[in-house]
Amino acid sequence: MVSKITLEVFRYRPDQETQPSFDSYEVPCEKDWVILDALNYIKDQIDGTLSYRWSCRMGVCGSCGMMVNGEPVLTCATFLNKFLPGPVKIEPLEHFPVVRDLIIEMSDFIGKLQKVKPWIVRKEEKSLEDGEYIQTPEQLGDYKQYSMCINCMLCYSACPVYGLEPEFVGPAVIALAQRYNLDSRDQGKGEREEILSQDDGIWQCTFVGECSEVCPENVDPAGAIQRYKVAATNNWWKSLLMPWGKSE
């Protein structure tokens, strides 16, 4: 017989209620089910009004991040039976305004990402006729890890600085800025550093590394932030000692 497990799910519909509440649902705890399968069971069989985002169910689209028993996870990559006998508490990702139920408002991230110019910046474009930019596997290795970010927002939920300072550009955006800074094809590092240097949040990051712990893709945003700090400090010294020299 399949065992059952209870999900305590955060509910909030701003056009119908002023305060959030929790609804309890008992679902089968199938061996192969992830948390997302249980939510889909609820939506299909018990309560069609429960709202959440999901799509690929294979850990790559980044839609289905939620707090499960207080930890930010991808619900498609978290097995349900690990939480037996339950109950399991499901909440929207922390540190974000809630649109409804388990759906958070993520336009803040979208805006911040655009601000750091996450694209190849070139003084002069190579023409297509001249072929590809040569990039050795080692050069690719310099930034590859940071290019793996799926924008799932788990690191923002884990970040104590973002929790206190919503202005902070945040772990994933810094990792993505570094992804381009470290790409041998890019020449936009200076422009991005100018933007990042205006952010006080970076200096408040204490390198506790919660962001890297929760990252499902091992992007290591904490490492990216540390590397940025070292580079920025070097440039600061350079600008002090050689004011005519340009930072890279």
């Binding site: 297509l128 072929g131 590809e132 050795t136 596997p137 050069q139 290019s147 890019d186």
Partner: peptide, 18 residues
Amino acid sequence: LQLEHWGCPWSRQDDGTI
């Protein structure tokens, strides 16, 4: 190739070509 110029991290041979 256009996507390469836009930064797609294509896997490379040892000499750095696609």
